[in-house]
Design a protein around this nucleic acid. Sequence first.
DNA 1: CCAGACGTTGTT
DNA 2: GTCTGG
DNA 3: CCAGACGTTGTT
DNA 4: GTCTGG
Length: 235
Amino acid sequence: MCGRFTLKTPAPQLFEQLSLQLDPAPLGDFPARFNIAPTQSIIAVLGDKGELAPIWMRWGLVPSWSDDLSIGSRMINARSETVSEKPSFRKPFAKQRCLIPADGYFEWQTTKVGSKSTKQPYWIHLPQDKPFVFAGLWDTNTKATGETVLTCTILTAAAAPEIASLHDRMPVLIKPADYQTWLSSEDKEQVERLVKEPVYDETFGPHLWRYHPVSTAVNNPRHDSEANIAQVATT
DNA sequence: CCAGACGTTGTT
DNA sequence: GTCTGG
DNA sequence: CCAGACGTTGTT
DNA sequence: GTCTGG
């Protein structure tokens, strides 16, 4: 699944490597991130009348009917298998899809040594740490605070065989050729296929994932430095 | 009809 | 154990 | 996802 | 807002 990720690639380079033609100016300046956690601001790219535009959104979807932002902490992921049916995700899946740029994400393996369990994080990334986009959904909410809050969630699917030993779920990726379909198609079947039966080739896809163990400093969301993605030895 | 949930993950 | 905050 | 709180009153 | 459970 995906509950923590990285985005260290600077803006102009980021969108170029993602094959996204858009103006990063609306985002303002932002630092390299090595531990992005739920409830924090993340970048969502949406289709804006044909043009694509990036915008900051709070991670953790808060449905429009909710009067409490805290529900977002439990809506950080949406299962692709059921996303078209769930009350909280159905409308966003139909009309409010987005792309969420990242260049790596973390998974944890829990291992027990005697009675003590330890959580070993791994950083998962593509060769050359090339950026990619998660399939995302967004919604707006004004009931909770009186202000309009934009929020989003990341879709998950069964893990690719290459990383299944690490975890049985993984985030859903959208390849450049499918950006436009994901963002603006009104063909439900076509959109559903992108997350349920994704087609990849040798240049893109989960089979290219690399991963290595990293410091447990990552476990604490307050720790956000480049050291978070350095390989460490496991014991 | 109204009340209450609306979600995922992991672990047991 | 369960929920909230980051 | 993991970490950290989980409660109230009164006082500073 | 919409669905499920009672």
